[in-house]
């Protein structure tokens, strides 16, 4: 009783209320300032994206015309388009993805189904992750060394090989991630019915993971369609119409690079038109991939 009385009459708490109020106010102020800064950081990010898109639409639409799609690249001053570059980009990106995807899927399957914790699996996972973020220009140099030098020149095939090497780690990552999401009970159910492991993987696991794997493939196409550096040393670029994969082949990013750095007005305009095309393509593939993944999971 006396203890409670003495603590009630203690003058301490009343002073502390004032201190606490002051402290609380300064804590709230710090919090508000930092929250505002974080909001500002997010707005800066969005403004930068908007600035890129607005610039592209503004300069790209100015230069856009039917001629871009019907004529091949030509000397400055003569009516040229981007037809060969667009077709070259499509050919190389699609064949590159078609070659890289099965390899990437097999590696991803190996990592998720066979080698979860083995040292070889860990090594492959590590190397694949390094390849995923390695500078793409080095992949161009590598393919130059193994395919361009020994086989006598720049070619569409070399460009395809470089893009396929970029595709592999992207597909590996998504395949492994998606297979890991599949519940083990599903696997056990399939094996319990007497199915061999490979049938379980191909018929059940791959099918269950298909939305995620397709997302990975779309992202891979989007990534390689915009790659410039690895193509500089492999397919080089070609100002004439060519679908011969053993010859140098034009591509949109390399053409944009050459045209944007030139002093000619009409070439720079074409570069903007190409830049708009490629960004629209890449961003719509990305958005498509995300929507697909969200609707299926």
């Amino acid at each position: 009783m006396s203890l409670a009385l003495s603590s009630m009459s203690h003058p301490g708490p009343r002073k502390d209320v004032a201190t606490a109020a002051r402290l609380g106010a300064s804590r709230k102020r710090t919090d508000r300032i930092i929250r505002t800064l974080c909001l500002a950081a997010t707005i800066i990010g969005l403004v930068l994206l908007a600035s890129i898109l607005i610039t592209l639409f503004y300069r790209g639409f100015e230069a856009m015309s039917l001629r871009v799609f019907t004529h091949v690249t030509a000397a400055p001053g003569s009516e040229g388009g981007l037809l060969n570059a667009i077709v070259g980009s499509l050919i190389q990106s699609l064949i590159g993805t078609a070659i890289g995807t099965p390899i990437g899927m097999l590696v991803g399957t190996y990592l998720a189904e066979y080698a979860k914790d083995s040292w070889l699996g860990n090594a492959v996972r590590f190397v694949s992750d390094i390849l995923l973020s390695a500078p793409s220009i080095l992949i161009g140099l590598f393919v130059y060394q193994i395919l361009v030098l020994p086989f006598g020149g720049f070619s569409g095939w070399a460009g395809i090989a470089a893009l396929a090497i970029i595709v592999i780690p992207i597909v590996v990552r998504t395949t492994e991630d998606m297979l890991q999401l599949i519940p083990n009970t599903l696997r056990e159910a399939v094996v319990g019915l007497g199915a061999p492991k490979w049938k379980m993987i191909v018929l059940i696991c791959w099918r269950a993971a298909i939305a995620g794997i397709i997302t990975g493939i779309l992202l891979a196409v989007a990534r390689v369609a915009g790659e410039t550096a690895p193509l500089l040393f492999t397919s080089l670029g070609n100002n004439a119409w060519s679908t011969d994969l053993s010859k140098p082949m034009s591509s949109l990013p390399v053409t944009i690079y050459a045209f944007a750095g030139s002093p000619f007005e009409d070439w720079i305009a074409l570069a903007w038109a190409g830049a708009l095309l490629i960004t629209l393509g890449v961003l719509s593939l990305n958005i498509l991939a995300r929507t697909l993944l969200r609707s299926r999971i």
């Binding site: 997010t42 994206l49 990534r223 915009g226 990013p253 690079y257 960004t279 961003l283 990305n286």
Partner: peptide, 17 residues
């Protein structure tokens, strides 16, 4: 998603911009 799209914009576009 918008911030992630910044990662999808090709390198050459950043160069021109």
């Amino acid at each position: 998603t918008a911030v992630e799209l910044l990662a999808a914009v090709p390198s050459i576009i950043y160069g021109m911009w």
